[in-house]
Nucleic acid binder design. Structure first.
Length: 259
DNA sequence: GGTCGCCTGGTA
DNA sequence: TACCAGGCGACC
């Protein structure tokens, strides 16, 4: 999935295409999606007008005019493809919204892990999410409070959406590199100075993230540590290491990211 | 906390 | 052929 900057960009693309438009037809072309968005929900969406599009963490919320909300989550490989109803389906099309102006919004998702759910009560349906990284409430102090009882390594903790909403595997690694903090440090052991660096680093890596998809450029050249195993650290030249934490790859510089 | 499963595709 | 992948929820 895309992480926060990509989802933010996708939600803007979606907003431009759908707000004020009426959904005339819904199609679901993949079994696992069909289970989450059954024909009854598809029928219910047809004829509804999209009032607004919001983003919360990596979720996109399409507010419909009957009060229901379509929750979209891209997981690893989802994305919107905006086209016209008369065109042939986009590659990896898993679901389609056809709009009254002839626009076709496609959920394109090679791995088919993305989810669409129609809900009446968003707060009941959404998991608890931490602050948005750009929210004023995301500070070294509030982060310290959230980490105070976390005895695990900081990197997997940063992926916990209850701590901060929207960070994923790439930008968690990038932020720790920027803050010169080892991904293996126990979360609650970080003091005020390092927490301040971490908050600043999270802001910085997200702000500098390109809006479009990762695939737009080659990996290894666009990040400071992510996907750079064995390559020299861009800061100190020491070899970047890859370890596995909570089943996910972590890339870091064992020399200049301190424990 | 860690591990697995969900799905499918790209790459070594 | 095997391993890896931007996420996350269920399970121990």
């Amino acid at each position: 999935m895309p992480e926060l900057p990509e989802v933010e960009y996708a939600s803007r693309v979606l907003r431009r295409a759908v707000v004020g438009r009426r959904i005339v037809r819904v199609r679901v072309m993949h079994r696992s999606l069909e289970a989450r968005l059954p024909p009854s929900a598809q029928r219910r969406m047809e004829g509804r007008t999209v009032r607004a599009v919001e983003r919360r963490g990596k979720y996109q919320l399409l507010h419909l005019d009957d009060g229901s909300v379509l929750l979209a989550h891209f997981r690893m490989t989802g994305d919107w493809s905006i086209g016209r109803v008369r065109e042939s389906d986009a590659p990896y099309a898993r679901a389609v919204l056809e709009l009254d102006d002839g626009t076709r919004v496609t959920l394109a998702d090679s791995r088919a892990l993305a989810t669409l759910t129609l809900v009446d009560d968003v707060s009941a349906a959404l998991p608890v999410l931490g602050p948005e990284p750009d929210d004023a409430s995301f500070t070294p102090q509030t982060l310290a409070a959230l980490l105070s009882r976390r005895r695990g390594a900081i990197k997997p903790v940063l992926l916990d959406q209850r701590v901060v909403a929207g960070l994923g595997n790439i930008y968690a690694a990038e932020a720790l590199w920027t803050a010169r903090i080892s991904p293996r440090v126990t979360a609650h052991s970080l003091g005020p100075a390092r927490l301040a660096r971490l908050v600043r680093a999270i802001h910085q890596v997200l702000r500098r993230a390109p809006a479009a998809r990762y695939s737009a450029a080659r990996s290894g050249s666009r990040w400071n540590v992510y996907d750079r195993e064995g390559l020299p650290c861009r800061r100190c030249g020491h070899g970047v290491r890859r370890i596995v934490q909570a089943g996910r790859s972590t890339f870091y510089c064992p020399f200049c990211q301190k424990r």
